[in-house]
Computed example of a mutant assay.
Amino acid sequence: MAKIRDKAYVLNREKYKAIKKYDHQQMEDFCTSIYESGYRTGYETGCKAAAETISKNIVSNIRIDTINEVLQAAAQVKGIGPKKLEEISAILEAGHEKI
């Protein structure tokens, strides 16, 4: 059975043998380095996810503001009454939900 190599840290045979010979302080340093590496990776992943969420919210808010501006402009056009304005609004909102 083949080993999976998509892990962030791979424990090969040489490293395993070296770890078996560690004293208390070396083992503590090794565990600390693994913890710090995982913490750093988690922090970077969390920051990236937060940035994506914030950007989606900003785009969504801009989209809502744009829809409102379009509806205000359409309301000023002669021949577009409240019913047509509601239809236009429904179509724009349906497009907004796809984003």
Rank of each mutant, 00 (worst) to 15 (best):
Q25L: 04
Q26Y: 03
G46C: 02
Q72V: 07
V59I: 01
Y43C: 05
S37T: 12
V70T: 15
I64V: 11
G46V: 01
R63S: 12
Y35H: 11
Y35T: 08
T41A: 11
D29M: 06
T32Y: 05
E44N: 14
R63W: 00
A18W: 00
I67C: 08
D65G: 14
G38A: 05
I58D: 10
Q25G: 07
G79A: 03
A49K: 15
L71C: 04
A51S: 14
K20Q: 12
I67N: 15
K48Y: 01
N68H: 13
R40W: 02
Q72R: 15
D23L: 01
V59M: 06
P82C: 00
E36R: 14
A18R: 13
V70D: 03
A73D: 09
T53Q: 11
E36D: 08
G38I: 00
N57D: 06
G79D: 01
I58P: 13
T32M: 07
S33R: 13
P82N: 13
S55V: 01
C31K: 15
L71K: 11
I19R: 11
A51W: 02
E52N: 15
K78C: 01
I34L: 11
T41Y: 03
K20G: 10
E44P: 09
V77D: 02
K21H: 04
N57P: 04
Y39D: 03
T53D: 05
V77N: 06
C47H: 13
Y35L: 04
L71P: 12
I58Q: 13
L71Q: 06
A75T: 08
T45H: 02
K21G: 03
G38D: 06
E52G: 14
R40P: 02
Q76K: 15
T45E: 02
S55R: 15
D29R: 14
I62F: 09
I62T: 15
Y35F: 10
G46M: 01
A73N: 14
I62V: 14
T32H: 11
K56Q: 10
T45W: 00
T53V: 06
D23P: 10
C47I: 01
G46F: 00
A73W: 00
Q26S: 08
V59A: 14
I58T: 13
P82V: 08
F30Y: 12
S60W: 05
P82K: 13
R63M: 00
H24A: 10
G42C: 03
K78D: 09
A74C: 07
I19D: 07
V70I: 15
G81R: 04
I58V: 13
P82Q: 10
S60T: 12
K56N: 11
Q26N: 07
A75N: 13
V70N: 08
H24G: 07
E52I: 08
A49I: 12
S60V: 00
E69M: 09
Y43F: 08
G42T: 05
A49C: 03
K20E: 11
V70S: 08
G42K: 05
T41L: 05
A73S: 14
Y39H: 10
Y22F: 10
A73Q: 13
M27K: 14
I64F: 11
Y43N: 08
G38T: 05
V59F: 10
I80E: 01
I34Y: 04
F30H: 09
N61G: 13
Q76H: 06
D65A: 15
N57F: 03
